[in-house]
Amino acid sequence: MYPSRQSGFVLITSIMFMLVLTLVVVYAVRSATIYERVAGNNRNYSQAFQAAEFALQQARGTLVDIPTIPSTNSCISGLCGKDTDISIFNNPENWISNSNLNKSCAVNDSCNTSGASKAISFPGASSQQPRYIIKELNSSGSCAFYEITAFGKGGNASSGSILRSVVKACDS
């Protein structure tokens, strides 16, 4: 009934089919892993941006009552004089270094209690609460201009966001 010589065509075909199926599954798993990483990075960036936006709003609330800015060219508790070089705050690592923590103000610190601000923790913060600095720029009559720089950290150590805004505050 069966021929004495079999060529093994079915065996070779099934092995080729399994090889192709394995390659498709490996590609699908790899793609899913990459998409998961991208989604995680987007989430971390979004957290960092929202934290910085929260700090920016808290700093704007501080300007409801115009604060006393130090006359020196340094930053103290988030308030910086006109001649202060704030370029160190362009780097996210400088915001959380021990030597600069007293120069900026965290949103849950006692320095964030003037004006319409209240010392409140950012609910989505990682180990670091969002921070801000306010630098006086110029005054014109009863109005003053301030540059606010805010920093927020995301879900991991490498995600951070720095936002800047210029605000005009006038005595009413």
Rank of each mutant, 00 (worst) to 15 (best):
V10D: 12
G155D: 08
N42V: 08
S142H: 02
S110T: 08
L163R: 07
P67Y: 01
S161F: 12
S159T: 11
N94T: 04
S121Y: 07
P123F: 02
D109L: 06
N138H: 10
K168G: 03
Y2M: 12
L21V: 10
L101T: 14
C111W: 05
K153F: 09
V107P: 06
T22F: 13
M16F: 11
F54N: 03
D85E: 04
M18L: 15
D109S: 13
S46T: 15
A52Q: 03
S142Y: 11
Y35N: 13
L11I: 11
G40N: 14
P123G: 01
A59P: 04
E147C: 03
T72G: 15
S74Q: 12
G40S: 12
C75H: 01
S7W: 07
G81C: 08
V29E: 08
P92K: 02
I69Q: 02
C105N: 07
R131C: 02
C143V: 02
I133V: 14
K168F: 04
T72L: 11
M16S: 12
A39F: 12
A55D: 06
R30Q: 15
L137E: 08
P67Q: 00
I162W: 07
I120F: 06
P70K: 06
R131I: 01
I134Y: 01
P123V: 06
L101E: 12
L21Q: 01
G78T: 05
V20R: 11
G81T: 10
G155C: 07
S31W: 12
S31I: 15
K103L: 14
S46V: 08
I88R: 08
C170W: 07
N41S: 12
N41K: 07
I96V: 15
D65A: 11
S71F: 04
Q47V: 12
T62Y: 00
E53M: 09
K168A: 07
G160C: 10
L19M: 13
A51R: 00
Y35C: 13
V25L: 15
P130G: 03
P130V: 01
N108C: 01
C111S: 05
E53K: 07
G141W: 02
I69L: 00
V167Y: 00
K103Q: 15
N94P: 05
S172V: 14
T22E: 09
G154Y: 01
V24R: 03
I12Y: 07
L56I: 01
G141Y: 04
L56W: 03
R131E: 04
K103R: 11
S139Q: 13
A169G: 03
P130I: 04
R60L: 05
L56Y: 01
Y45E: 14
G115A: 05
A51K: 00
